[in-house]
Simulated scan of single mutants.
Amino acid sequence: MISRRTLLRTAAATAVAAPAAGLIVNQAGAGTTGRRAKAGMPLTIVNKTGEYENKSIYVYIVGNDGTNQVRVTPEGELKPVAVSDNGGDGFTDYAIPLAGGGDTTIQLPHMSGRIYVALGDKLKIKAVEDGDGKAALAYPAGWVEGDPNHGVMHDCAEFTFKPEGMYCNTTMVDMFSVPLAIQLKGAKDQTTGALKDGARAKVFEAVKGAQGFDKLVIDDKRVIAPGHGIGAGLFAEDYFAPYIDEVWSTYEGKDLTVTTNAGKFTGKVSGGKLAFTGPGEVSFDKPSTKDVLFCDGTLAAPNDGVTGPVAAILGAGFNRTTLAAHASQPTDDPGGFYQGDLTHHYAKAMHEATQDGKAYGFAFDDVGGFASYIEDGAPQSITLTLTPF
């Protein structure tokens, strides 16, 4: 799985070479069938918004085939992105329209990427050249007021599909707009991301009502994550400072233990650093609010099996505000998460909204298995449902 921590994090990603294996689009209700793909799995898009008709919903499948950045055409082919795909308005048109009625089924090939849904209007995705002169995509950034997609209702799910299995999740790490649910059938029948009845409105209300978070609600279009709110001047860059200070002060006087797959690490604050011994020596400078919210900077998690897992657990502890109260991490009781007035109210609202209590409210929400993520080693089909508003 290319995890949520690294999947398509940059606006301009890897460029292209030859087209990968083709895929087909079968639009249920429209009676159209394309070429049979050599390999793949059916992806069904279901519109249950109750607010938008099929004709005003557009799907985009973009990502990477393991070597090159690719996209899916309305005709059902997997093609490399190209700067020449930009039209007269300066943007590509990679939209896959939904069927005129009923569900829309797409034969999904092996790839990693995002499934974007846009409601009411098409997305403006620009093909650009990266630092190596290769074609890449500037992905939508709805949390940026100047982004061309700021006015478009849109959201996405993420996936990696390869011979070993399907790994997928809904995400609110950057923003929340369109309620989405994933059903994955294979060795098991699993669903994640589904919201409780009326929960979309409750998310907007909860975030707007939390002190310091109210500016993150952008009309009825979306709620943006507080990390992005800092960059937009909509969220205090020192919000978590009192809690960070509390954590640092707490572990100047006692040990903090963090247990990972590599073993148990024991840490203490000394000389301004939170330093651990155990299977390896790991230390962290005092993080900023931005570091906490993005689980990056001083809390960056390299894929090294030592520093990375410890950083992930610390990041989760900060975001869930469990770190100061529990000297043994990670904690696994969600009833103790997001307590007090100073906490991650955005992530809290996302978890309270879902039927299974799982959500990707921040990048390390998979710690302890609390993310809206599912996988299957023998997948047969996947369904992405735009659930009722």
Rank of each mutant, 00 (worst) to 15 (best):
P148I: 03
G142K: 05
R200M: 07
E164Y: 04
A194Y: 01
K196G: 00
S177L: 08
V178F: 15
Y139N: 05
E158H: 05
L216Y: 05
V223C: 06
H154R: 13
P163Q: 12
Y167H: 06
T191R: 08
Q211K: 14
D197N: 11
P148D: 05
R222V: 02
T191K: 10
M166L: 14
A181D: 10
A210V: 08
D197Y: 06
P163M: 14
E145G: 02
G146V: 03
L180M: 15
D189G: 00
P179Q: 11
G198F: 01
Q211H: 14
R222H: 10
P140M: 11
V144W: 08
K185W: 06
P140E: 10
I218Y: 02
C168S: 07
G186F: 01
N169F: 04
V173E: 02
K185S: 13
A199R: 00
K215F: 05
N149G: 02
P163L: 15
C168T: 11
T160L: 04
T191E: 15
F213G: 01
N169C: 09
A201V: 03
G193E: 02
A187I: 10
D219F: 00
E145Y: 03
F161P: 09
M153Y: 15
T170P: 01
F204N: 09
D214M: 03
R200C: 05
M175S: 15
S177A: 13
Q183A: 13
G193D: 00
P140Q: 12
A181V: 11
V223M: 04
V173W: 06
E145R: 09
G142H: 07
F213D: 01
A157Y: 02
K188F: 08
N149T: 05
G142E: 04
Q183G: 12
A136N: 08
K202I: 10
T191L: 07
A201E: 07
L195E: 01
A141N: 07
K208L: 07
L195K: 03
M166G: 04
K188G: 12
F213Q: 01
P179F: 14
S177T: 09
A194C: 08
S177H: 10
M175E: 13
D220F: 04
M172S: 14
R222A: 09
K185R: 15
D220E: 11
G209M: 12
Q183W: 07
T192D: 03
Y167G: 01
D197W: 06
K162Y: 15
P148L: 06
F159I: 00
D189F: 00
M166T: 07
Y139Q: 04
H150D: 11
D214P: 03
I218H: 04
I224R: 03
Y139E: 09
A141I: 02
D197F: 08
A225C: 09
K196F: 01
R200H: 09
D220C: 03
K202Y: 06
Q211M: 13
G151C: 04
D214Y: 06
T160E: 10
T192S: 04
W143L: 01
A206W: 12
V217N: 06
G198D: 00
P140C: 13
Q211W: 13
